[in-house]
Design a binder for these strands. Structure first.
Ligand SMILES: NC(=O)c1ccc[n+]([C@@H]2O[C@H](COP(=O)([O-])OP(=O)(O)OC[C@H]3O[C@@H](n4cnc5c(N)ncnc54)[C@H](O)[C@@H]3O)[C@@H](O)[C@H]2O)c1
Ligand SMILES: NC(=O)c1ccc[n+]([C@@H]2O[C@H](COP(=O)([O-])OP(=O)(O)OC[C@H]3O[C@@H](n4cnc5c(N)ncnc54)[C@H](O)[C@@H]3O)[C@@H](O)[C@H]2O)c1
Lengths: 255, 255
DNA sequence: CCATCTTTGTGCACGCGTTCACAAAGACAT
DNA sequence: ATGTCTTTGTGAACGCGTGCACAAAGATGG
C-alpha cells in the first residue's frame, strides 16, 4: 500500500521559493490587464494592490527573477509580462489531456481560459465507449485505450484527472507510465506517484469544509459575545477575520 | 478601488493553526473510508500514510483537538470522525448558494460530494432570465433578482461564485451585503471583501501555470544533465522532485 | 551639476509550520 | 504485579515566508 517514500521538503527550485512561484500567475494576470489598457509602467504598490498582496512581498518576489524595476519609476509592464511568462514556461506550448469527460471534465474542456495561456487541450479521454467520437467543446472524445498512444505521440506532460475517485489512482498510474510528469487532480483522493512527478489537487469539498470551520467559529464568537454582553440584538461581529494566508501552494504529497 | 485594508496574518482561530484546519478534511476523508470498512482503530502511522502526510504532523494536528488517542493502540476511528466533524462544523447543515449556472456552475450543482457532508445546495442563481425556472440537477434556477431574498430567507452564509470574472466582484458585493460571510470563488479575479468575510479561491489557470513552471524546470535540468553528461539517451531524471509542500491553504487576500 | 523626491531592492527580525526524537502512557503477556 | 512492547503526545530545533524599515538608485527639476 504505502510506497514508503520519504517526502522531500520542497527543494527550492532554482532560488525561486515555492510561495513566489504560486504568486507569479497572480502578478501575470494583473499585468496582462494593465497591458491591455496600455499602461506602460506600474509601481510595486499599485501592482500589489491589484494582485492583492503586500508590496514588499511583491518586490521580493520580483527580486528572485532579477532586477527588472527602475527606482523612482516602477516596473515596465510589457517587459515584466514577458519575464514572468518566460519564468513560468508559458512561452512554450503545453499540450494537456483531460481524462474523465463527465460534468466537470466537460466544463473544463469548455473553459476558455485554458488555451489563452500556453495550454492546449490535446485530447479528451473517457472510459465510456459510448462517448467515443462525440465532440465536446469541438474536440472528439477518445477512448481510454488510446491514452498511452496519445500521450506519447503528442508529447503530453500534463494530465488532468476528472474521473470518479475510484478510478483516479489507476488513471494516474497509466498517465505516469505513459510519460506524464505533472498531474492536476480533481478527484477527491490522495494520489500515489513516483518521485519526479508533480501532483496538484483541486478539492471543492475540502475548500467548503475549511469555510465551514471559519463560519462556525464566527458564529461561536458571535454567540459568546451575545451572552457575555447584555441582550443586544444579534449582530455578526467577528473580532478577527482571517481570509486565510495567501501563500497558496495546495498540493498533495504521498505516503 | 482598493479598500486599503491591512492584511492580518491569519489569526490563529482557537489554538488550531490554519495549516491544521486545512488538513482536517483530509484526515476525515481517510477516516470515513476506514469507518466504512468497519476498522475500529488506526495508528497515526497508518492514517498518515492514507492521508499522505507525516505521522508526527498528524499527531500534532490531533493534539490541537485534544488527546483522543490511546498509546500503544492508536485512535478510535468512529470517535475521531465525530470529533473532526464537530470541529469543522459539519454536524450542522450549511445551506449554500451557487451563483452563475454555466458550464462550471452546472457541474458543481450536479456534484454529489456536496450534499454528502453537511452542505446543501439551497439555490442556483443566474442572471440569464432565459434560465429561470429551468431545473439543473433537480433544482430550478432562480434569477439574480431573488438573490437577496433567498439568502436572507434560508439563512445562507456560504456562497459559491461561478460567474465570468467580470461579474464576480459585483456578485460578491451583493452576496456579502445580503449576509454571506464565506465565499468560494471560481472566477479568476481577486475579490475585495470587507473584514469578517472569508474568501477562498479555486483557480485552474494558476494551478496549471505552477505545474508548467515545474515542468519547465524538470526539462531544463534534464537538458543540462544531457549536455554535461556525454550523449546518453535522453531520459528524464530530475534529481530532486518536489511535489510541492502539502501545507495547502489556498486562499486570497485583498488589497 | 546639485538637490530633491520617488520607488526599488534587501537586511533583518519574527512567527508559523514541519520534523526529529524521546519520554511517558498504556496495552498485553507472564 | 511486573516487565516488555507499542504508540502517543510534545519539547526543541530548524527553515521558510512575511513584512518592516531603510539605504541606495535613479529620475526629474532648477
Ligand atoms: N462536478 C463537480 O463540480 C466536482 C467538483 C469537485 C470534484 N469533483 C470530482 O471530479 C470528478 C468528476 O466529477 P464529475 O461530476 O464530472 O463526475 P461524472 O460522473 O459526471 O464524470 C466522470 C467521468 O469519468 C469517466 N470515467 C470513469 N472511469 C474512468 C476511467 N477509468 N478512465 C477514464 N474515464 C473514466 C466516466 O465515464 C464519466 O464520464 C469526481 O471525482 C468528482 O468527485 C467534481
Ligand atoms: N469551466 C471551467 O472549467 C472553469 C475552470 C476554471 C475557472 N472557471 C471560471 O468559472 C467561471 C464560470 O465558468 P463557466 O465556464 O461556467 O462560464 P459560463 O459562461 O459557462 O457560465 C457563466 C454563467 O454565469 C452567468 N452570469 C453572468 N453574469 C452573471 C451575474 N452577474 N450574476 C449571475 N450569473 C451571471 C451566465 O448567465 C452564465 O450562465 C468563469 O469565471 C471561469 O473563468 C471555469
Amino acid at each position: 500500500m504505502a510506497t514508503g517514500r520519504t517526502h522531500r521538503p520542497a527543494t527550492r527550485s532554482r532560488g525561486i521559493p515555492e510561495a513566489t512561484v504560486a504568486r507569479l500567475p497572480l502578478y501575470l494576470r494583473a499585468l496582462t490587464a494593465l497591458s491591455e489598457r496600455s499602461v506602460p509602467t506600474v509601481s510595486s504598490e499599485e501592482l500589489a494592490a491589484a494582485a492583492g498582496v503586500n508590496s514588499a512581498k511583491l518586490r521580493k518576489d520580483f527580486s528572485y527573477l532579477g532586477s527588472y524595476g527602475t527606482r523612482g519609476v516602477g516596473y515596465d509592464v510589457e517587459y515584466l509580462v514577458y519575464q514572468i511568462s518566460r519564468e513560468l514556461g508559458l512561452t512554450q506550448d503545453w499540450p494537456v489531456v483531460i481524462v474523465g469527460i463527465g460534468n466537470l471534465g466537460a466544463a473544463l474542456a469548455n473553459y476558455g481560459g485554458f488555451a489563452s495561456r500556453g495550454f492546449r487541450v490535446a485530447a479528451l479521454i473517457d472510459a465510456d465507449a459510448g462517448m467515443a467520437g462525440k465532440p465536446v467543446a469541438g474536440i472528439p472524445v477518445q477512448h481510454t485505450d488510446e491514452l498511452e498512444k496519445i500521450i506519447q505521440d503528442d508529447g503530453v506532460s500534463i494530465g488532468v484527472i476528472a474521473t470518479p475517485a475510484g478510478a483516479a489512482q489507476q488513471v494516474c498510474d497509466r498517465l505516469v507510465a505513459a510519460g506524464v510528469t505533472s498531474i492536476l487532480n480533481f478527484a477527491p483522493t490522495v494520489l500515489n506517484v513516483p518521485e519526479g512527478v508533480d501532483v496538484r489537487k483541486v478539492d471543492l469539498s475540502i475548500e467548503l469544509q475549511i469555510l465551514a470551520f471559519h463560519e462556525q467559529r464566527k458564529a461561536g464568537e458571535e454567540a459568546a459575545a451575545d451572552t457575555v454582553v447584555p441582550p443586544v440584538a444579534a449582530r455578526k461581529q467577528p473580532h478577527s477575520t482571517d481570509q486565510g494566508p495567501d501563500g497558496d501552494v495546495p498540493a498533495v504529497m504521498q505516503a
